[in-house]
Computed example of a mutant assay.
Amino acid sequence: MRILMTGAAGRVAAMLRPRLSRPGRTMRLLDITPTSPGDREEAVTADVTDPAAVREAMEGVDAVLHFGGHSLEKPWADILHVNIHGTQVVLEAARQAGVTRVVLASSNHAVGFHPRGEQVPATLPPRPDTYYGVSKAAMEALGSLYHDRFGMDVVALRIGTCDERPPDVRALSTWLSPGDCARLVEAALAATGFHIVWGISANTRRWWSLDEGHTIGYVPRDDAERFAPALIAEHGEPGPAAPAHALLGGEFCVRELGASW
């Protein structure tokens, strides 16, 4: 099996690559930044907005992990070209190559202006907090379109805070461990149909429901709670009205729109 991973030089991809490696699987790494391939890896230096380059990279591929694009807020023109147009380029190249399985790296920022709640479902409609959030809502819409039009199996992962450990108190609720991220991707690669799923670990304090993840076979194993005493001692508990805890997008909802972060 050969999997094309876009954005392969990025931070989340770097955590995923060793966890997704296994005999019988080749990871084809695509990024505008040159990457050094390891065992069972191939590297392609290309831009996700270049249709010809992406079509060439799609040859012989069985599935796509689309992690390419800007990972933080940028001016609108940059977000439109790289994140939105780039996603359409990847999906269209997959369609043309007969690749029917695509996993999209969406984000909680597609729904960032929704207030936090108890076990919020992944079916929450878009309410983006930034141009970046708009691009993730558009990514989900494009995935839905390519599923309904062409029968592609597409899973959009609304990823929270994916890191080796939660960086702050808010992340005790939104953390996705690298190990659980890999388990989520594996479940998404086996799923059929179109799904939007929260990218979150089994955190004691989680705001988001795991029900949709369970539907595709995702069973997280990690819980951010073991980091809670140290983080709370260092940072304290934010007030409930603070954007970091009041809204799903946190501080993205109050930062300058369209500025490069």
Score class of each variant (00 low, 15 high):
V254A: 11
G236H: 10
A230M: 01
P128V: 10
E234S: 13
M15R: 13
T215C: 09
G112Q: 08
L29Q: 07
V99Q: 00
H70A: 15
R183H: 04
E237K: 06
A14T: 12
D78E: 15
A188D: 08
P238A: 11
W261L: 13
M27L: 15
N83A: 06
W198H: 14
R255Q: 15
P121C: 09
P238S: 10
L189H: 05
E92M: 00
R149C: 03
R22D: 07
P178V: 05
V155Y: 05
D222R: 02
I196M: 04
A43F: 06
E256A: 15
I216R: 13
R17S: 09
G239A: 07
G239K: 00
A63G: 05
A57Q: 01
I84R: 07
D47W: 03
T35W: 05
A122T: 07
G249M: 05
D62F: 00
A122E: 07
V169D: 07
E73L: 04
V134E: 12
A187R: 05
P126Y: 07
R165N: 13
E251F: 01
F227Y: 15
V103R: 01
P166Q: 05
V48W: 06
R158I: 03
L231D: 10
P128Q: 12
V111C: 07
T35P: 03
Q119I: 11
P238C: 01
R255P: 01
D222S: 02
P167H: 02
R40L: 12
A228D: 10
P243E: 02
D222A: 00
V154S: 05
G239Q: 00
